[in-house]
Amino acid sequence: MHSQKKLIVSHAPFWHDGSSITTRSYHIMLAAMLAIIPGLIMYGASAVAVVSMSVSSAILWELAFNKISKQPVSVGDGNASLIGLLFAMMLPATSPWWVVVTGTFVAVIIGKQIFGGIGANPFNPVLIGMSILMVAWKDYFDFDAALVNYDLDMVMVYPLAYLKNFGVSIVDQFSIIDLLTGKQVGGIGATFGIGIILGGIYLIIRGFIRWEITISFLAGIFITALAFQISDPQNYAGPVFHLLTGYTLLGAFYLSTEDSSSPVNFIPMLIYGAGCGVMTVLIRNIGAYVDGVVLAILLMNLANPLIDKIRPKAIGKVA
């Protein structure tokens, strides 16, 4: 501390795409619309209510915290509304209002603001909200029970729960096209695969999310699921099924790529993404939970600071 150096600047990685947080948030939300709108059409008014409730309550919680902690109002950066939107994408369309409001409280206040606001959160706030709610009210996150009153033109069973309870034989009932076009039970914005992928690709091209994480996440899922299937095809579903069900795509494109809880270096990003994917399949195939994406990403968030230390050293440089 007594040296003359005032600033210690490390080498790149620095990442700047020339836009502010605000434009970033709105671009991500715009891309997410591709996945949400089919969900809204599918589930109708109650889904619209959940999404608008989620976004607006997230903004209000952020505003309330800003006021109480006497910080400048940070609602304008769009991050709170982004949290609200992503949170709503994961919910079943029938979630009661108080589940949504508590969830955004946990996500915005406990997941983000407590740690010092945007950029300081060690975990993805959306997933903090989601995991706490799943622990507290797991009945409302049982998609089969939540959507029992809907009868749409598709297999009305949550694919992962179906797989867990009835074994691998049910996989044939879901065609890839159905899964990709949202003909499956799930969260409001988590089922329309094509929309998520297109939105994600747009964000990758614009540089708002990192392709390394997304690709290694999907690769991690694919390889682990394939390994399981090869070792015991009677008991484990194939990789494509795992890729297109549950929160996999949402996790790969929108959740694991959240800025402050994911790594910045190239190799760490690959490790992080692959770790999420591997953990997801492990939890789904071996663990007690139906879907592992939420917990897998949280776990890798936890390891993120350590993973980020893995980087190639300059030749000849000591320490």
Partner: peptide, 19 residues
């Protein structure tokens, strides 16, 4: 009222104490 069961579990204790 649907009990917020998270609060009576161990992680809820930490969050509650922190708040």
């Amino acid at each position: 009222y649907e009990p917020f069961a998270f609060m009576v579990q161990a992680p809820g204790a930490f969050v509650c104490l922190g708040l």
